[in-house]
Write a protein that binds this DNA or RNA. Structure first.
Lengths: 338, 338
DNA sequence: ATGAAAGCGCTAACAA
DNA sequence: TTGTTAGCGCTTTCAT
């Protein structure tokens, strides 16, 4: 069933049908309702391929999300959609797996949907100049920047928290409670991800407090999933129990770690305080509730859209915004017991 | 940059470039590498719109997922993708919001991507004949069936758990531990969703045990989110404390309820046992770990793909499979205390 | 092994 | 207000 069939069925031309379908004003009410009737009756749906192909320009902003599982992204996404609409654009969402290439996906979307700009959520931090050459529209990296890459400040935009700084703050809050033996649960020491940045903050906090780094207190999970975090925590506890606090680079990992501690007979926070970064909804409903630094999803989303729209409309060059986290006190941290 | 530009740049015809891009055999190695070179150098990406438009048939199976937030869907999705590939098809994923229309989205995908079949994950349970008339390929409803609709058994396929039956089983397990005052946390009594089905199972379990239904023990959350579940539990506790066990229709709701109970000074499971249905990863890492009936994601996914492929290849009519849940014992249930 | 040309379904000039 | 028509970028016969 094509637009031609509908036209024939109605006894009008394809352009008239097209006009009805696209809400163009100059169609008589009679013809309009007759066409709609036939469209409904035949369950006709226009081909987006044909539409996209013929349209030379759209008001679409693309959002490429990497990693479906991340609950934090769901919140960001919601606000982004609202802000994009508010700015008079439409949003085209595209999800890819953890191993997908967000720049390639973005380039395809740009091509197919004639995008005006691109929002990248949860991507890699090591783009090269050649990588981004595939993109011909402005783009904003959300929740990460190009810390490990070769891009100049002017060549892209970003909105994120200062991962190193905030991790440092989290660990210092633990130190402020009298803790000096502080373990760390990270995904990997050198994976060019957020983990590496936050691990750096952990090390700086210790250093600035005059505490020597003890590598036996650091455990790598190899992923951001709860089962792996639980197992890593078991390994750490098997190796040493010599710590009174734990810093985890994500909420999900912290919650799994709390269970591992509990299973090993160590109460949280009495025997071990636990502090994390993320601030997802779930960790506010677990027992004990998690003490964490919240990444402000709404603010990140709003800022990202604002920057992108500014760039699209020619009002700005590459801009880089770092938003502050907000401390969400839970019940997983207490002052060091004697 | 179009295929024409690439052709011109290489000094060959568009058909030759097309052949290279689609890995057709009859192109000389020389020409092939030259074309690839130019494609790379110019970051050329073919237009999917144009491709989809001209292709009359594909090997694509569409998957429409309703509700991004659901962590259970992520697991199902993964297995589905694997099974679809294994069967020699490619998968096209399309996510829609909770308020989106999965049948309309499916029909669009079918049109655009020339689908051979459709997998529906997390949709409504009340399709009418006219609703599904928009679909011209076989489809399988996953995690739900058409309990409230008007479809005949032959008109569609489904893979799900028996929600009423499994809820009944969950509540009976509580009764088996000596509980008779069992509260229920549901999303709504009559929302034509899984909640209504599971609430029916709750009522039947009570009835078959000779326990009168006490509506004051039933609380509606109005959503499947944790904050709403927590608030609903607070309302319930404010109204009455007269129960020794709680049945929640989902894991996430149960975890939030446990916190509400804890905040009200009621220990789980000593003062109140909690039992749910879902079996998501998260609830195995909260304290106390949740006792729940697991929906076997892998099995549901595998079964759904198998049925769909059978239908596509003409080997079967509408088929309806109900898979059993698996009890995952946690620490949230114990025998009734005196 | 390569090229020429038709046409997928639609929108948007341009005509009438 | 309505119809005619030229492409959008690509794949695919059919020639060569």
């Amino acid at each position: 069933m094509t637009i031609k069939d509908i036209a024939a069925l109605c006894g009008v031309s394809v352009s008239t049908v097209s006009r009805v379908l696209n809400n163009h004003p100059d169609v008589s009410a009679q013809v309009r309702s007759r066409v709609m009737e036939v469209v409904q009756a035949n369950h006709y749906i226009p081909s987006n391929s044909a539409r996209d192909l013929v349209r030379t320009r759209s008001d679409a902003i693309g959002l490429v999300v990497r990693g479906t599982a991340n609950p934090f992204f769901a919140e960001v996404l919601k606000t982004m959609e609202a802000k994009v609409t508010e700015a008079g654009y439409t949003m085209v969402l595209h999800q890819i797996g953890t191993c997908g290439d967000e720049l390639q996906a973005g380039a395809m979307l740009e091509r197919d949907k004639k995008l005006r700009g691109l929002l990248l959520l949860g991507g890699r931090s090591d783009y090269t100049k050649d990588d981004v050459a595939a993109l011909n529209v402005p783009f904003v990296c959300c929740t990460y920047d190009n810390s490990y890459g070769t891009l100049g400040e002017e060549e892209y935009s970003s909105v994120s928290i200062d991962d190193e700084q905030e991790a440092c703050r989290a660990v210092k809050s633990l130190i402020g409670k009298g803790h000096r033996r502080i373990a760390a649960l990270i995904s990997a020491r050198n994976d060019r991800s957020i983990s590496e940045l936050r691990y750096g903050g952990y090390r700086r906090a210790l250093k600035e407090a005059g505490i020597a780094l003890d590598e036996t207190l650091v455990e790598e999970t190899g992923s951001f999933q709860m089962p792996e975090a639980y197992e890593a925590m078991e390994r750490l506890l098997r190796r040493t129990g010599e710590f009174t606090a734990l810093f985890a680079i994500s909420d999900a990992m912290a919650v799994a770690a709390i269970k591992a501690l509990d299973d090993a007979g160590r109460r949280v926070p009495e025997d071990c305080s636990v502090m994390a970064i993320d601030g997802i909804t779930m960790s506010a409903y677990t027992l004990p509730t998690l003490s964490t630094l919240i990444q402000p999803a709404d603010q990140i989303a709003a800022e990202a859209v604002r920057i992108l729209v500014d760039r699209i409309e020619g009002r700005a060059a590459g801009r880089h915004v770092q938003v502050d986290t907000i401390l969400r006190p839970g019940r997983s941290v207490c002052v060091k017991q004697e």
